[in-house]
């Protein structure tokens, strides 16, 4: 091999590399942007909580702790199944991967369902921005619910997006796109799913426990 050829081969190899670890690197950067996004909401929450400590405490009792806790467990379990799916994919175990990806999808849907039940109850009681019970609240409590709906709403959107990603992985897995050589998308989708889970791990205590 001439020098020029070997260099060309090196370049080609490098570009291959970018495909895999580069994609993972890209995903990490994307996760950082997501964290910044939620950081804003957490900051707003922190500021208003400091300003309206009492009201926040009052308001947080309105949330359904049981459903919140169940949902936390659901989401943590889904993270676990996602990790298993990644492990299975790495070992090239296609049907196992299918199983765990499906489980993750179902758990994600369960999460959204429970969330919807919670929202439904709130809306039924008029406790939504602009709703009758909401209007009657004092300023600090309004802010709490405003933040509650914004934060959990945005998070739910992320879960929804995550489910779509997992479904897409599921389809590709069924089509036999993945092997023990090539499983990057599963890994990367897994990273995203864990992030969504992680955000909930912060939302839950802030909204349901501390208030």
């Amino acid at each position: 091999m001439s020098v020029a050829e070997s260099i060309r081969a090196m370049v080609a190899e490098k570009e291959e590399l970018a495909g895999y670890s580069g994609a993972k690197f890209g995903m990490w950067l994307f996760l950082i942007t997501e964290l910044m996004l939620f950081a804003v909401l957490f900051t707003a929450y922190g500021v208003f909580r400091a300003l309206h400590l009492e009201a926040f405490h009052e308001a947080h009792r309105e949330l359904n702790l049981t459903l919140g806790t169940v949902n936390t467990l659901v989401l943590i379990t889904s993270s676990f199944t996602m990790a298993l799916a990644v492990g299975a994919a790495q070992r090239g175990r296609r049907s196992l991967t299918t199983l765990f990806l499906s489980a993750t999808t179902l758990l994600g849907i369960a999460f959204l369902f429970i969330k919807a039940v919670e929202y439904g109850a709130k809306i039924h009681h008029g406790l939504y921005p602009g709703g009758p019970a909401f209007q009657a609240l004092e300023a600090g409590e309004k802010l709490f619910f405003g933040l509650y709906f914004t934060m959990t709403g945005l998070h739910a959107l992320h879960v929804y997006a995550g489910i779509l990603v997992v479904l897409w992985l599921l389809v590709r897995n069924l089509l036999g796109h993945f092997s023990s050589e090539y499983f990057a998308p599963v890994e990367i989708g897994g990273l995203y799913w864990h992030l969504v889970d992680l955000i909930w791990i912060y939302l839950f205590p802030l909204l349901y426990l501390v208030g």
Binding site: K142, G146, L147
Partner: peptide
């Protein structure tokens, strides 16, 4: 759209 209040002084926002 919804009136969540975070930036609206009329609702205690800042």
């Amino acid at each position: 759209i919804l009136g969540i209040g975070i930036f609206n002084p009329a609702m205690g926002g800042d």
